[in-house]
Nucleic acid binder design. Structure first.
Length: 842
RNA sequence: GCGAGAGUGGUGGAACUGGUAGACACGCAAGCCUUAGGAGCUUGUGGCUCACGCCGUGGGGGUUCGAAUCCCCCCUCUCGCACCA
């Protein structure tokens, strides 16, 4: 017998062409009845071949979407390109190839490659963020936010990357203050920049997180990033002046333990309160602190330093004089830029007091169990709760009980105010780089900031620009033809804003544009947006947890409040894929360890490659690349192919199917196997658990082989085992094999399509209904019950389903070798888990 | 330092609300079939033991008739945050 194999190189392109000709993946957005927006985080168009990561993300995401389509959802599955950004610009600086040219070429290449995956992407609904037809609306959004006061310009100390020569958002500064992009340590600079007022939404961004079907991990990351803390702002009058220092604390119950106040060195009151004799030392200290890199300054290892200002504040409750210090461990950017020093009950304050020999005053007694551990011992602050001591009227109270009372006390004395602070800062959106959407603002000497009128949008990025890096200025600033403009308001000479927008602005709304990418009248079709959003299922890397995902949430809420969108959240459900590593290391060009899928796809086909990535890993976890895995799954696809090939007779015209014995063990087993596989695959695909879904299909394939009675001549070789099998009903067998093809359709779309046609069905298989399973069939009449003696498995028995506990117990006591094991001992206790096990305790 | 997640055969990985640990594969072994085979088929495969059996989910305790799963302590790894007051 000649070998029976299929050739993916022939099948796959053929079906992709057929799908395209059928217009299979063009979504009727308006007419859809059960919308299911299946969105993937859009790729950055790099010049490389698609890498394993693309396949690992997009292949399974498409499989999930196909599964949903077979479950009769109207699936919209688009993809686009996050095409602005630094890599293209840096590449241009290196090679002289213009970012637009390289990006356009990369996008075209990438589309060609993406097509080989056989995904259902609707290419009529795509977007390229660097296209003027797209960024025109990015600019429009900027102006909408500007008009609403949600975009504003201010001078502030901001992060600056010396390599990329641009400012960065807080969110783009990672790990000990290095640039997310290039790994260079960043520095703080005082610059005037554009911000989006995301902090206005801190509370809602936090609270509406609860209802999202997102991984807990991701929600936690966002919660931590937003960093809400509830506390009180306390006013400390400065002795001999009419000034007051405001501190923020979450622990007002320790207020009687305050022995000093500390201002950030840059605090605006520093110069005004410092006594003449201390002024020079304090200003020197401030200058030193400024020169320190942020890394040195915020290192927890560093020895605490500070200078006394010579001034004192008045304790609002005791009237005591409290010395005021400056110290660099207090950050101007958090809270009020000033803290009350409670060395006994705050570790940082303790270290500060220890380093500068300041008094420590204990006002909370450590709990006994805390004393036993490391806290509360001399040489340590006690940060827990306990009984309050030496605290006026609160003495003897529990510190938790004191807390709300002292807040009320301070408020009634007009010395304090309950406040909530957030760690979240406003989103810095301007960049001093060329390859981005220009900020649509004109600066006019007469009129100040003037927004570009809507009808003049887009502000097109000029092509002919010297985009080399220079002195921290935007390359656009060197283009006089771009910069010089007439003020739309006074018609006088004015200049454009030379900066471009953070590319995260582009990606914070792209999913709305997919719905009507060619609309020239408006950024999105509101009716469609509200019909299809929030996105039913979003997938992408966890690294975007506090960048893209937070920004997009902010954007949707802001646009809602501006009346442009009736939506609260962009993404209802979210999943993150894991990472594929190579010998334990992240794949990257610089490590030269990137695995390119091309050769595998050439040999085994896209289906096998996709299936391998789904079967060989727990998708959310990722793992290490293994060559052998793909051969295994390719072999299995051949096995499925052979299964259908070998049984083609079952579908031939007028075939007389052997009824076999409809009640034979084989027939019953096959029916059961089919329902089990459908249930398993359905539940697992729903949960993005592709590896177990495929395992369930494999079991069904194995059952089909096991129970079918192949003509030995049809096999490649005759099995030695020639024991006659139970006759199986061929109707049941046919149904089982058809089910295999359907279940395979999301996993290996090209092959399943071919098999679907082979068994005489009309393509496309993706429009076939997903197989159903019958729970009643799965509730077989017999179950295996395990018999344990003292918790150890000793035997098992087949009994009728839902047998009463008493009967199970009676059966177990006499079953097989159980009586011997019990050996006449009294059974002290019997635990019966219905349909599962019985445990005899002797 | 704080927070979150993870640790299961030689390997990738399964295991619902505590209920037969190791599904499904890879690999390996034996056999079959083949001119040939990185093809196909059958069987076996956690460890120790001739066997009865015992031991096994990072380590140590605990709860329970019963623990990979729950609780406590510890170790290791990954990822966030990192003087956030």
């Amino acid at each position: 017998m000649t070998e029976i194999r299929y050739d993916p190189r022939e099948i796959e392109p053929r079906w992709r062409r057929a799908w395209e000709e059928m217009g299979l993946f063009r979504t009727d957005l308006g007419g859809a009845e059960r919308p299911c927006y299946a969105l993937v985080m859009l790729p950055y168009p790099s010049g490389d071949r698609l890498h394993v990561g693309h396949w690992y993300h997009y292949g399974p995401a498409d499989s999930w979407a196909r599964f949903m389509r077979m479950r009769e959802r109207d699936v919209f599955e688009p993809i686009g390109f996050d095409a602005f950004g630094l890599p293209a610009e840096n590449y241009a600086i290196r090679t002289g190839i213009h970012p637009k040219d390289s990006t356009d070429r990369n996008v075209a290449n990438m589309i060609e490659q993406l097509r080989t995956m056989g995904a259902m992407w609707d290419w009529a609904h795509t977007a390229n963020t660097s296209d003027p037809s797209f960024y025109r609306w990015t600019q429009w959004i900027f102006l909408e936010l500007y008009r609403a006061g949600l975009a504003y310009r201010k001078a502030a100390p901001v992060w600056w990357c010396p390599t990329d020569q641009t400012v960065l958002a807080n969110e783009q500064v990672v790990e000990a203050n290095v640039c997310e992009r290039c790994g260079t340590p960043v520095e703080k600079r005082d610059l005037t920049q554009w911000f989006f007022r995301i902090t206005d939404y801190a509370e809602e961004l936090l609270s509406s997180l609860d209802d999202l079907e997102w991984p807990e991990r991701t929600k936690t990351l966002q919660r931590n990033w937003i960093g809400r803390s509830e506390g009180v702002e306390i006013e400390w009058p400065v002795e001999g002046t009419d000034l007051a220092i405001r501190t923020f604390t979450t622990r007002p119950d320790t207020i009687y333990g305050v022995t000093f106040l500390v201002l950030a060195p840059e605090h605006s009151l520093v110069e005004r309160i410092t006594t003449d004799e201390r002024l020079k030392a304090v200003l020197d200290y401030r200058d030193r602190a400024r020169r320190l890199s942020e890394i040195e300054r915020t290192s927890t290892e560093a020895e605490k330093t500070g200078e006394p200002t010579g001034a004192c504040a008045i304790h609002p409750l005791t009237g005591e004089r409290i010395p005021i210090w400056v110290a660099d461990f207090v950050l101007l950017t958090y809270g009020t830029g000033a803290v009350q020093g409670v060395p006994a009950h705050d570790e940082r304050d303790y270290d500060f007091a220890a380093a500068l020999d300041l008094p420590v005053r204990w006002v909370i007694e450590a709990e006994p169990e805390d004393q036993a551990s490391k806290q509360g011992l001399p040489g340590q602050a006690y940060t827990g709760h306990g009984t309050v001591v030496d605290s006026g009227r609160y003495t003897g109270m529990r510190s938790e009980d004191m807390l709300p009372r002292v807040v009320a006390h301070l408020e009634s004395a007009a010395s304090g105010e309950a406040r909530v602070h957030y760690r979240l800062r406003d989103w810095l959106v301007s960049r001093q780089r060329y390859w981005g959407a220009p900020i649509p603002i004109i600066h006019c000497e007469e009129c100040g900031e003037v927004p570009i009128p809507d009808e003049d949008l887009p502000v097109e990025l000029p092509y002919d620009v010297d985009f080399s890096l220079g002195a921290g200025k935007s390359p656009l600033e060197r283009s006089e033809s771009f910069m010089q403009v007439e003020c739309p308001s006074c018609r006088g000479a004015a200049r454009r804003d030379p900066d471009t927008m953070d590319t995260f602005v582009d990606s914070s709304w792209y999913f709305l544009r997919y719905l009507s990418p060619h609309d020239e009248e408006r950024p999105w079709d509101r009716a469609l947006a509200e019909k299809w959003c929030p996105v039913y299922q979003y997938s992408g890397g966890i690294e975007h947890s506090v960048l893209h995902l937070l920004y997009a949430r902010f954007m949707v809420k802001a646009l809602r409040d501006l009346g442009h969108l009736g939506l609260d959240e962009p993404f209802r459900r979210l999943v993150h894929q894991g990472t594929i590593t190579n010998q334990g290391a992240k794949m990257s060009k610089s490590r030269d360890n990137v695995i390119t899928p091309d050769s595998y796809i050439a040999e085994y086909g896209a289906d096998a490659f996709r299936a391998y990535l789904m079967f060989g890993f727990a998708w959310r976890e990722g793992g290490d690349w293994k060559d052998e895995g793909i051969r295994a799954i390719a072999g299995w696809l051949q096995r499925v192919w052979r299964l259908v090939q070998l049984h083609r007779r079952l579908w031939s015209e007028g075939a007389a199917l052997a009824q076999g014995d409809p009640d034979s063990d084989a027939t019953r087993a096959l029916i059961l196997a089919r329902h089990r596989a459908v249930r398993g695959a359905t539940e697992d695909l729903e949960a993005w658990q592709f590896n177990t879904a495929i395992a369930r299909i494999m079991e069904l394939v194995n059952a089909c082989y096991q129970h079918s009675q192949l003509d030995p001549a049809l096999r490649d070789s005759t099995p030695r085992d020639s024991t006659p099998r139970d006759p199986v009903s061929e109707t049941v067998l046919r149904e089982a094999i058809e089910t295999v093809v359907c279940l395979l359709a999301p996993i290996a779309p090209h092959l399943a399509e071919e098999l679907w046609a082979m068994i005489g069905r009309k393509p496309p298989v993706v429009d076939a209904p997903w197989p159903e399973y019958d729970p009643d069939v799965l509730a077989t009449e017999e179950v295996t019950v395990v018999i344990q003696v003292n918790g150890k498995v000793r035997d098992e028995m087949r009994v009728a389903r839902d047998l009463p506990e008493k009967e199970i117990e009676a059966l177990a006591l006499t079953h097989g070798r159980i009586p011997t094991l019990i050996d006449g001992k009294a059974v002290r206790k019997v635990v019966v888990v219905p349909n599962r096990l019985v445990n005899l305790v002797v």
